[in-house]
Design a binder for these strands. Structure first.
Lengths: 335, 335
DNA sequence: AGTCGAATTTGAAACGTTGCAAAATCCAAA
DNA sequence: TTTGGATTTTGCAACGTTTCAAATTCGACT
């Protein structure tokens, strides 16, 4: 039982209430300069009293704009803190704007499908994607089809687009630097998946630091942050039993850092004594659970928020060249 | 540059291609029995070739149905693993259906606002909410306004509605049982926020177990799982220095369990030796990081998926009495 | 009083869909 | 052939909005 006036009010309702025409009402609500000041006030008051809310389907049908921003995320990420923080960040970046947030998860094996779907059905005014590759077919596709988008990571394909990226080169360098400062000499890197852009950045920073601090690299098989944790734990155990075992570990993902460290621990070694681990820090819980680790900051919430803002600016016509951020571990927003 | 036929195809386009009327095409695509078998095939083929996708705004405007399910979540939950797992679960429960997933985060202080918004704007066909209270105004409001919904938790207000709930009574009982099995005698409970339904369930199970196993309770100030972690850590340190300090801790949230345990550790005590902690387990990373804890399973992904399915059944007219699940720590789906 | 231009308001059309009543087609029986 | 009933197709209206050209009102100035 609705309290009064059963159906929800439309422009027609307001037109009847005020005795004006429908298009007058429509324009008055959108502050059109063609409408007399007094009329506008009258209409807006009536709208408020009637509890008028524009019908989004009507608007969308007429204007072709959906007022939706969609975040396309790998379902595999769901377990990680990244997913929650990132989504929250985007949603807070969208708060107060006309845009709603829609999550589009996709299955590991087909990353193009959700992008095609969104573009074909025009179900969003803008798209945010993650897990960016240097040559990313999603980026090419959206650019060619005129769908506004922003990426969480950089590409290397000569297409200029809005992005936000974490400076993983600086992260890896800083991680190694801190390990070196604790006297660690043989460092192992649990790298990101090799097809992703930040694999290269991470590697570059890692190697630059090895040179600068004159350290050895412990050559690890290509375990990536996508490998199942049990496998990484096993790799950690193996490495720990190696005659020239590493005494420092760098991992781009908290979960694999934990798993690798667990492997060391299960092999009888003690963290902060026999070895150290440096990884990224995002959730406060992690830090409180494992205070012995070395943490370098990465703020996924801020990344999500920034991407939302960049994307909206891009939709509003701002040039992509001015919508590219790289933020480092220490500083706020650079470049 | 789109490949061909620049604008995206509509029913009109298909009508022109096939030489049929628009409404014939519309019905053919929806398998109406009034349409001749051969016509239907012809239309569906044409639709496929043209890459036709129904315009959602058109459908929505005409039918009044949005094909959207929205999950209204406390922004504070964003940090926790709950958020990611739960959202992922809902999204997987929606996969393959006509429904899209929209996340509506809300600010701590006003839980009614997003619910009112969704109902007033009819922006979803169904709603999923969490952090349920025994007497929950959101439930009453949606029930009164005929908005289909499902809750993650039970209410006590005489309104029959679909829900999925974890059996926190059983959780707390099991947690204490395992502590008792390790010889722990003085148990402290870090309880959920006292206004939420599962506070009562948790307490009931906790107290039943204390009686059954003849244990003492360490009376903890009312720290809840919502308290800042630093504060819980401090509480843990205090409790650890108490002359009759607890030797067992039960927490309904992994993060507060970690924080409390960190407090004990910082007071010089050793987990699994001087004390034990039992909490819930959801993410594999947690378990690998802190294998010394006692974990009782709670599957947020499954909860999300189940809620999506319950809600859709409810929208399709199935009676709410048959859409109420309580799942325990051990078993699969019970009632 | 009449005219002109500016300020303000308005009706009609269109966006893409579905439901319905009406029209068209078909086939078998008379 | 005609009729009648069933089968199949179709045009129209409507959902709520915005845009745009046209209509109306208003003042000020001849």
């Amino acid at each position: 039982m609705a309290s009064q006036g059963d159906a929800r009010p439309t422009l027609k309702t307001l037109a009847e209430i005020t005795g004006l025409g429908i298009s007058t009402v429509s324009q008055a609500l959108r502050d059109s300069p063609a409408i007399a000041e007094e009329t506008r006030r009258r209409v807006q008051l009536a709208a408020q009293q009637a509890g008028y809310r524009p019908n989004r389907a009507g608007v969308r049908l007429r204007t072709g704009r959906s007022n939706v921003i969609t975040v396309i995320l790998n379902a595999q990420d769901a377990g990680s803190g990244f997913f929650a923080d990132f989504v929250y960040g985007v949603s807070s970046g969208l708060a107060g704007t006309a845009y709603h947030l829609v999550i589009t998860p996709y299955d590991y094996h087909d990353q193009m499908a959700p992008v095609r779907y969104v573009v074909e059905t025009a179900s969003a005014d803008g798209v945010i994607i993650s897990r960016i590759m240097p040559n990313d077919p999603r980026v090419r596709y959206m650019a060619e089809n005129g769908m506004p988008f922003a990426t969480h990571g950089r590409t290397e394909m000569g297409i200029c687009h809005p992005y936000h990226d974490y400076d993983n080169e600086a992260f890896a360098y800083e991680a190694v630097r801190q390990l070196a400062a604790r006297g660690r000499r043989r460092i192992a890197l649990v790298a990101p998946p090799p097809d992703l852009s930040y694999f290269h950045h991470t590697h570059a920073g890692f190697e630059r630091a090895l040179r600068d601090f004159n350290l050895e690299q412990f050559p690890l098989a290509t375990y990536s942050t996508d490998t199942p944790l049990a496998e990484i734990e096993a790799a950690g155990r193996d490495a720990a039993r190696h005659p020239h075992r590493p005494d420092g570990i760098v991992s781009a993902a908290t979960s694999s850092a934990f798993a690798f460290a667990a492997g060391f621990k299960n092999a009888g070694l003690v963290i902060a004594q026999d070895f150290d681990v440096a990884t990224k820090h995002s959730s406060p819980m992690i830090k409180i659970a494992m205070p012995e680790m070395i943490y370098v900051e990465e703020d996924f919430k801020a990344a999500g928020r920034d991407l939302a803002e960049l994307l909206i600016k891009s939709i509003n016509g701002q040039a992509a060249e001015t919508l590219q951020h790289v933020v480092g571990p220490a500083n706020g927003t650079a470049r």
